[in-house]
């Protein structure tokens, strides 16, 4: 049992909530607004707790709760320092609940959203697998705990990989320009549309945990240099907020095409050149 990771995982909603609160402030400032207080996500959380619960059917509501549990578990898998590839695939497992929940109601928006959620996965999943291979190439291990203690700094030898991960961050977090699964103006939140009250709270919190998950992946690029890792996380945070503010939504073909035909080749070029150089 890795107690440190367990405690960190238990508190991850708090951290993720703060990140989300900060994000809302930063985004507002970028638009020349004042924006809500930093604690706003927690106010939302407490308010949702107070609402009368309404559901479509129990199966759907239960899947929302399981999405939270699944995400939490997958975060623990990531933080406990095990295999990186396994941790990446556990993320798919947690998304499965959201997708099945989204499919289980007879709402067109929800079904469209669930389908798009899967398309998101199609876009970013190969990229993350390749990234794990790249991190292995640099540090010689798939164990996250060893990557964090290695002497190498992956960022310096995998710059193109880092750039592609940075550009695919919006896909993972469902932010503009790749927010097609959520698309608030179009399908009103996609798979989360039919959740409300306490059940929406679960989905909302799961999204905060995903922030922690994603930024921890960014943190890995610092390798043994944790200060650099922290800086990268900060940079990534501002970068994707900027991207979120200045871009419009693309359609799913453009999203998948961008990931497959631009980002994956970038990663492959970096990996192959590095592997050839090291012989």
């Amino acid at each position: 049992m890795n107690w440190e990771a367990l405690v960190f995982t238990l508190f991850s909603p708090v951290i993720g909530g703060f990140i989300y609160g900060l994000e809302r402030v930063v985004r507002a400032r970028m638009q020349g607004r004042v924006g809500p207080p930093v604690l706003q996500p927690f106010y939302d959380f407490l308010k949702l707790m107070d609402k009368r619960s309404i559901v479509i059917h129990s199966f759907h509501a239960f899947m929302g709760i399981m999405y939270l549990v699944g995400t939490w578990f997958s975060l623990y898998v990531l933080l406990s320092g095990g295999d990186l590839l396994i941790a990446i695939f556990f993320h798919v497992l947690s998304l499965a609940f959201l997708v099945v929940g989204g499919f289980s109601v007879r709402s067109p928006y929800s079904i469209l959203g669930a389908m798009r959620e899967l398309l998101h996965m199609v876009a970013y999943e190969p990229l993350y697998v390749l990234t794990a291979a790249g991190l292995y190439l640099v540090t010689g291990t798939f164990q996250i705990s060893e990557i964090l203690n290695s002497n190498e700094v992956p960022l310096f030898v995998l710059p193109l990989v880092f750039v592609s991960i940075l550009l695919s961050l919006p896909t993972l977090l469902k932010k503009s320009p790749f927010d097609i699964a959520e698309a608030h103006q179009e399908i009103i939140g996609g798979p989360e549309i039919e959740y409300s009250g306490k059940f929406y709270e679960a989905v909302y919190t799961a999204k905060w945990i995903e922030y922690v998950y994603v930024f921890f992946l960014i943190f890995l690029f610092g390798g043994g240099n944790h200060l650099l890792g922290a800086f990268l996380v900060l940079f990534a945070f501002f970068f994707f907020n900027l991207l979120d503010n200045v871009t419009a939504r693309v359609n799913f073909r453009q999203m998948v095409a961008f990931h497959w035909y631009v980002l994956i080749p970038l990663v492959v070029i970096n990996l192959m050149l590095l592997a050839l150089w090291r012989g």
Partner: peptide, 22 residues
């Protein structure tokens, strides 16, 4: 492998989604 398995995931969940709709 990465692309193929994620495409199969999309395929299977598409079918599971149709079955579990109620």
């Amino acid at each position: 492998i990465a692309t193929g398995s994620v495409i199969l995931t999309l395929l299977y969940f598409k079918v599971i989604g149709v079955m579990t709709r109620k």
